Computed example of a mutant assay.
Amino acid sequence: MRLNELKLGGSAIIDHVEDHTAGDPVAERLRALGFVPGEPIRIVAVGPIGADPIAVGIGFTRFALRRAEAARVLLRDAA
């Protein structure tokens, strides 16, 4: 599952961030911000028009991502 498919209030574990090209700057930035394998993540809010952007929580930090950016983050079930 991808982060942009997770529903409001949903939780999961980050599996990895997908690179679109070698040295992908968006993927590198997401990893630098803490989108790393094994981190729990949850959807805390969505934008009013088209549910864009998505507000996600990792630990005590919140980030707003466009749906296209969130689609790069692959998840596994929180078990």
Rank of each mutant, 00 (worst) to 15 (best):
A68N: 15
R67S: 14
I43C: 06
A32Y: 09
A64N: 10
R42V: 06
A45L: 07
R67Y: 05
A70S: 05
I49K: 15
F63T: 09
I49F: 13
T21S: 08
A45C: 10
V26E: 12
H16A: 08
A32F: 08
D15P: 03
L3F: 08
I54F: 00
P53L: 11
E39R: 15
H16M: 09
I41D: 05
T21L: 04
P48F: 11
E18W: 00
P25N: 12
F60Q: 15
I54S: 03
E28P: 00
R42C: 12
A55K: 10
N4S: 14
G50W: 05
M1V: 10
I13A: 05
A78H: 12
A22V: 13
H16T: 06
I13V: 15
F60S: 14
I41N: 01
E69I: 06
I58M: 05
G23T: 04
G47Y: 02
T21Q: 03
A55T: 13
M1W: 08
I43R: 00
A70M: 02
T21P: 06
R72D: 03
A64L: 15
N4A: 13
G38F: 07
A78N: 11
A12R: 00
A32H: 11
A51H: 15
R29P: 00
F60W: 11
G34S: 10
I41E: 03
V44N: 02
I41T: 01
F35Y: 07
T61D: 15
L6Y: 01
V44Y: 02
A70Y: 00
G59W: 10
A70I: 03
R66H: 13
R31Y: 01
H20S: 11
P53T: 11
I54W: 02
V46K: 13
V56G: 05
A27P: 00
G47I: 08
P37V: 15
R66I: 05
E5R: 14
F60N: 13
D15L: 11
K7D: 15
I13W: 04
V36G: 06
A12Y: 04
I43F: 04
V17G: 03
D15R: 13
A45Q: 05
G34K: 01
L65Q: 00
E5L: 14
K7W: 06
G9V: 08
V73N: 04
R2G: 08
G47C: 07
P48M: 14
G34Y: 03
G57S: 15
R2P: 09
L65P: 03
A12E: 03
D52G: 02
A22K: 14
A22H: 06
M1A: 12
R29I: 02
V36W: 05
G10F: 03
A51T: 08
T21F: 05
L33K: 11
E39Y: 10
A32G: 12
R42Q: 14
R72I: 03
I41Y: 02
I54A: 01
A22W: 00
E5A: 13
V44I: 13
A70T: 03
D77Q: 14
T61S: 14
F35P: 01
E28F: 02
P48S: 11
L65S: 04
L8G: 09
A22R: 06
E69W: 04
F60E: 15
A79K: 07
A22Q: 11
G47R: 03
P37S: 12
A68C: 05
L74Q: 14
R31M: 05
L8H: 07
G9T: 12
